[in-house]
């Protein structure tokens, strides 16, 4: 599943924003066609590293909107390599990376 990361440095601070394509099924919604509950499938953890150093960890619940959006700021500079990894409750994982502009 795809992910989009934007990271921009200004005055020694990097502003990082990301969106991860993920359905974030709560497990409480019924499928309109089958009438059966759609099983929960949601991202539980997102870890972001900059040049290998952990800069942000998000632990999420089912109440995060579909295609989760996250933004945060850390001390860094243009050229820093950002890596984002996520894991959902079914064990599925995803990865994305970008270079800070």
């Amino acid at each position: 599943m795809s992910m989009k990361i934007k990271a921009k440095a200004s005055g020694g601070v990097v502003k990082a924003k990301m969106m991860i394509k993920h359905p974030m099924h709560t497990g409480m919604v019924k499928d309109k066609k089958t009438g059966k509950k759609i099983p929960a499938k949601f991202i539980q953890e997102v870890v972001v590293t900059a040049n290998g150093k952990k800069v942000f960890v998000a632990n999420l619940n089912t109440s995060i909107s579909k295609d989760p959006f996250l933004s945060f700021e850390f001390k860094g500079k243009a050229g820093d390599k950002l890596e984002v990894t996520w894991k959902d409750n079914t064990g599925a994982t995803g990865k994305g990376e970008t270079v800070v502009k």
């Binding site: 601070v13 924003k17 709560t26 150093k53 952990k54 800069v55 942000f56 960890v57 998000a58 089912t62 109440s63 995060i64 909107s65 989760p68 959006f69 996250l70 933004s71 945060f72 700021e73 850390f74 001390k75």
Partner: peptide
């Protein structure tokens, strides 16, 4: 973590 600003945004249900 140290070096990260206490400033976050998220969208919730």
């Amino acid at each position: 973590p140290e070096g990260t600003e206490p400033k976050v945004s998220v969208r919730i249900r």
